[in-house]
Amino acid sequence: MLEIRKASIGYDSKIIFSNVDFLLEEGKLGCITGQSGSGKTSLLRAILGFVPLLSGEILFNGSALTPQSAETLRKDMAYVPQELALPAEWVKEMADIPFLLKSNKKLHSRMEKELPQVLESLGLEDDILQKRAREISGGQRQRVMLAISMLLGKKLILVDEPTSALDADACGKVLNLFRTTCKQGTMVLAVTHDPEFAHSCDKILQID
């Protein structure tokens, strides 16, 4: 369970938002919406322990997120930033990167087995793995990154604007993938500007 209690975030004495409450249970798909600059991504980064709260607290699986507990709690989280070109020559190497980390290594062989199927569910040909990373489009890269995060076997998946580079058909496929992942008990929390995506979520946190 992810619980945000009376959270306030700000930089250089300027408050971005205050007193935000939110609860996301196991197996639920949630989203954070709001205008640009309202602090959606900052809240996502606060859940990851990268941004300090001015007040309030964040609890993940009953444990308070603090600078000391963040590294341990993050072992049960996956994160997909909005735009990131991983330093890899080939798409397959991109997929390998998070699975080379000590905490994910044991899932590497499962990823190799299941990734083509997940990519297919997102409308990608499995030969995309043999392509050069710089040759694929932004939308393809976004879907590959999402597919990778779904196979990390984490309890909470945090994604920043997962459909920003996708058309309506691909958005639907991403939503279906999130739903399938949630059915296994995983929580997915996405920052989004897309009202249709937001309406399909179980929980919506609107920040203004």
Partner: peptide
């Protein structure tokens, strides 16, 4: 390339693993 650093941390890397690249 702080995005890469945060990506690695956010996916379970230790500080040293995230700084390794």
């Amino acid at each position: 390339e702080r995005q890469l650093y945060y990506y690695l941390l956010g996916n379970g890397a230790t500080r040293l693993e995230a700084l390794a690249p």
